[in-house]
C-alpha cells in the first residue's frame, strides 16, 4: 500500500512539473520516447518465428509487402501435415514390403492359394488324421 501511495505522489509531482518543463526538454523527451517505441517494435518480429522464417528477414516481413497473415499458424499446420504424411508414407512402405514378401512366397509355394484361403480346409489340413478315431 505504501508503495502505491508513493507512486501516486510521484505521479502527481510529475504532472505538476509538466507545466514547468522547457520546450527544449519536452522535445528531447518526445524524441527519446519515439526512439524507445521504435526499438520496442523491432523486437516483435524476432519472436514471430514463422514470419521470420518465411521471409528470411523478420522486421521486413512484418512491415513489407510480403507479410502473410497467420503465417505462424499456417506454417505450423503445414509442418504438421508434412510430418503426418511422412509418417504415413513410412508406414505404407513397411506394410507393402511385408505383404509383398508374403504374397511372392505364397504364390510360388508348392501349395496353391486355395489351400490357405478356405478356413475350414486349412484347419482340416493341419489336423493329424494318423491317429485312430
Amino acid at each position: 500500500m505504501n508503495e502505491e501511495r508513493y507512486a501516486s505522489r510521484i505521479r502527481q509531482a510529475l504532472n505538476y512539473g509538466l507545466n514547468d518543463i522547457s520546450p527544449i526538454a519536452a522535445r528531447r523527451l518526445e524524441a527519446a520516447r519515439h526512439l524507445a517505441l521504435s526499438k520496442q517494435k523491432q523486437k516483435v518480429p524476432v519472436l514471430a518465428l514463422a514470419g521470420g522464417l518465411l521471409s528470411g528477414n523478420g522486421s521486413a516481413a512484418m512491415r513489407g509487402p510480403f507479410h502473410i497473415p497467420y503465417a505462424r499458424q499456417i506454417f505450423a499446420v503445414l509442418a504438421l501435415l508434412v510430418g503426418m504424411w511422412l509418417s504415413f508414407y513410412w508406414h505404407s512402405v513397411q506394410y507393402i514390403n511385408q505383404i509383398e514378401e508374403v504374397d511372392s512366397a505364397l504364390l510360388s509355394d508348392d501349395l496353391p492359394p486355395e489351400a490357405f484361403f478356405d478356413d475350414d480346409i486349412f484347419e482340416w489340413l493341419k489336423t493329424d488324421d494318423s491317429s485312430p478315431d
Binding site: 508374403v102 504374397d103 501349395l111 492359394p113 490357405f116 484361403f117 478356413d119
Partner: peptide, 25 residues
Amino acid sequence: AKARDSYKEFNQLTPEKKQALKEKW
C-alpha cells in the same frame, strides 16, 4: 488376408508337418 495368415501359420510348422499337409492337400 485369410490366406496370408494361414500361410504364415503354415511356415511355422515343422518340415514333417508341412510335408504331411502337402500330401493331404
